[in-house]
Design a protein around this nucleic acid. Structure first.
Lengths: 146, 146
DNA sequence: CTTGTTGCAAAGGATTTGCACGGCT
DNA sequence: AGCCGTGCAAATCCTTTGCAACAAG
């Protein structure tokens, strides 16, 4: 269970929306990409399969996927939005190399818990959070070790 | 010491740049704002003092301030960049209300330390990080307590 | 049939850039 | 004089939106 297409279909039905081939193609490509995709990258890959898809549809569908809880929007600091699948994927944060843009996903339960405590201490009901660590990865260290 | 104008002047000198009235006016307004400013807000406030300043200069100066370590760029998720002074201001993160956009600054040393450990565990040299907690503040809770 | 959906192109909003003029140094 | 900085407007970049044709329920 927890099949993304199924979840999507259900979300669509519940919202009175419609099930179109474009949407499922986009979801398909999005899920199988295996990495964070920008809208443009996703658009390009989708176009490789189905040429009759406009970028507007990719933007609209990506937004839909976020609402359906199937995708998460990420901002790595370069001004363009990236997306990653989120269904059945454990929450995690990102460690990003500012040189090669490689990124590592991590999860630190202690940090997560501290965040929740902190929010409730301020009377907030936490809905989401984003933690981005920017640095230089081992391969990109200035003192060339290679 | 650690007078921002002084730091700025020094940075400018070291970089072979020039000391202009616009730059100092912008810095002045920026420092005295006492809150996070978008480029447009800063531009508007600067214009109230000196009408002969273009927004391009505000953008350019803000970038300069970031390079000089006097400002930090923030992204609250609405697609527009905001800035806050950073010189002599302790590092902190942000807790943002998704309803009224009010934001609280906080610092949790344990979280900070865990981030560093995490980064070095992955071979990264951490240069900066951003932690954004999004939620609903006490005043904006759905079940109207008022 | 009714209403949501699509692709295209135009519109938008934020930020950047080209350029000729003006001002430090 | 030389060079950086400035304002203005045009240009970009990413994303959204209007619209007429189209397709799903």
């Amino acid at each position: 269970m927890a099949d993304p297409h199924q979840v999507f279909t259900q979300y669509i039905a519940e919202s009175g929306l419609k099930n179109t081939p474009q949407r499922h193609t986009i979801l398909e490509v999005f899920l199988s990409a295996g990495k964070h995709l920008s809208t443009e990258e996703l658009y390009t890959e989708v176009r490789a399969i189905e040429k009759n898809v406009g970028q507007a549809t990719v933007y609209r569908t990506l937004k839909l996927l976020c609402e359906a809880g199937l995708a998460k929007e990420l901002h790595f600091g370069d001004g363009i939005a990236r997306y990653e699948p989120s269904l059945g994927i454990a929450h995690h944060d990102h460690l990003i190399c500012t040189v090669c843009h490689k990124n590592i996903e991590f999860l630190d339960n202690t940090i997560e818990q501290l965040q929740n405590e902190l929010a409730s201490r301020h009377g907030f009901t936490l809905t989401s959070h984003r933690l981005y660590l920017y640095g230089v990865c081992a391969d990109c260290q200035p003192k060339g070790n290679r």
